[in-house]
Amino acid sequence: MEKEISESNPTPLYNQLANLIENKILSGSYQYGEKLPSEGEWMREHDISRVTVRNALQLLVDQGIVEKKQGKGAYVAFPVYKEAFNAGGSFTSAGVTSNKTPTTKILEKEYLNLSEGQQIELGFMASEIISLKRLRNIDYQPVIFEIDYVTKEMAPIIDGLTESDSLIEVLKAKGYQINHFDNVIDVSLATAELAQQLQVEEGTPLLHIKQQVLDASSKLIYFNEQFINSKLYKAAIRSY
C-alpha cells in the first residue's frame, strides 16, 4: 500500500500533509468546528517531524481552512460567509441567493419604555416600543445576534412573525415602503449573553451595526441592531 505521505514524492512533506488534511475536511472526515489530531498524532501516523506538521497546519491556517486555539489545538475552521449586496438588507434573502441555509431562532420579545435619551438615539417618537431578539445562523452556525426595535402598533406583525420569515419582506407585504438604511458601524466586545449565543469567548470583538430602516421621506420604520461574528460572516453595506 502506497504511503499517504512519502519522501519519494517531489512535493514537500508539509504540503503533502496540508493537502491530506484539506482533502479529509472536504470529504467530511473532519467536520467544521471539529478538533484535529494533535501534532504528535500526525507525527506518529506519518513518521514525520514536528516542524513538518507545524508548517502544514500553519499553511492551512493562512488559507483559513484551520484555526488554532491557544492551549487547545487545531480545529477545522468554519467557512467565511460573504453577504450579497443585492439581498436588499434581508438576511434570509442573502443566504438563499448564495445557496446557503439561513435559519433564525426567535429568542425573546419584550415591551420596553424608552428614556428620552434612548428615543433620540434610536429615532422613535413614542416611548413604548417592542424589542425582538433573534439568533441568525448560516448552515446552522450562529453568526449574528440581532435585536429589532419596533413601535407597539407593530405588535400583530411581530406576534405573527415565524422563524422562517424575513421581517423586511413581511413589512413590505404589509405596505411599508422601505427605502433606505442609515448605519452606524462600531466594534463591541461580546458580553456573556452574546458569547453564549454566538459560541465565542466572552470579550471577543464583534462587528456592531446600529441601523435605522427608513422610508423615502426618512421616517423611521424600525431600528435594527446586529452583533456579528465577523470571522464567519462578512456584512455587505452599499452606499449611494
Rank of each mutant, 00 (worst) to 15 (best):
I5G: 01
S6D: 12
E7F: 05
E7W: 04
S8E: 14
P10T: 05
P10K: 05
L13D: 01
Y14V: 00
N15I: 07
L20Q: 05
I21A: 05
I21Y: 07
N23M: 08
L26N: 14
G28R: 04
S29R: 07
S29N: 12
S29Q: 12
Y30P: 06
G33Y: 01
G33H: 04
K35V: 01
K35Q: 11
L36Y: 07
P37D: 14
S38W: 08
E41L: 06
E45Q: 15
E45N: 12
S49M: 08
V53F: 07
R54N: 11
N55F: 01
A56L: 07
L60H: 07
G64H: 05
V66A: 01
E67I: 11
Q70S: 14
G71Q: 06
K72L: 14
A74Q: 00
A74E: 06
F78E: 05
F78Y: 15
P79M: 03
P79N: 06
V80I: 13
Y81L: 04
K82Q: 15
F85M: 09
N86V: 14
A87T: 11
A87R: 10
G89D: 08
G89V: 13
A94S: 15
G95D: 04
G95R: 05
V96K: 14
T97K: 15
N99T: 08
N99C: 12
K100C: 13
K100P: 00
T101V: 10
P102Y: 02
P102N: 04
T104V: 14
L107V: 05
L107G: 03
E108G: 00
K109V: 15
E110H: 11
S115R: 10
G117I: 06
I120R: 15
I120D: 15
E121L: 15
L122K: 15
L122I: 12
L122T: 07
L122A: 00
L122G: 03
A126I: 11
A126G: 06
A126M: 05
E128V: 09
I129H: 02
S131L: 00
L132R: 09
L132M: 12
N137D: 04
I138E: 01
I138A: 06
D139Q: 03
I144W: 04
I144H: 07
T151H: 00
E153W: 08
M154N: 05
P156Q: 06
I157H: 02
E163N: 10
S164T: 10
D165A: 03
D165S: 08
L167C: 03
L167Y: 07
I168H: 10
K172H: 05
K172V: 08
A173L: 11
K174L: 02
K174S: 12
Y176V: 03
I178G: 04
N179C: 13
N179P: 03
H180Y: 14
H180C: 11
N183P: 01
L189D: 09
T191A: 05
T191M: 10
A192Y: 00
A192M: 09
E193G: 00
E193M: 11
A195Q: 10
Q196F: 12
Q199D: 04
V200C: 11
E201N: 11
P205A: 08
I209T: 10
I209W: 02
I209Y: 02
Q211A: 13
A216I: 13
S217K: 15
K219C: 12
I221W: 02
F223R: 03
N224T: 08
E225Q: 14
Q226V: 06
Q226H: 05
I228E: 01
I228D: 02
I228A: 01
N229L: 11
K234G: 04
A236F: 12
S239A: 08
Y240V: 01
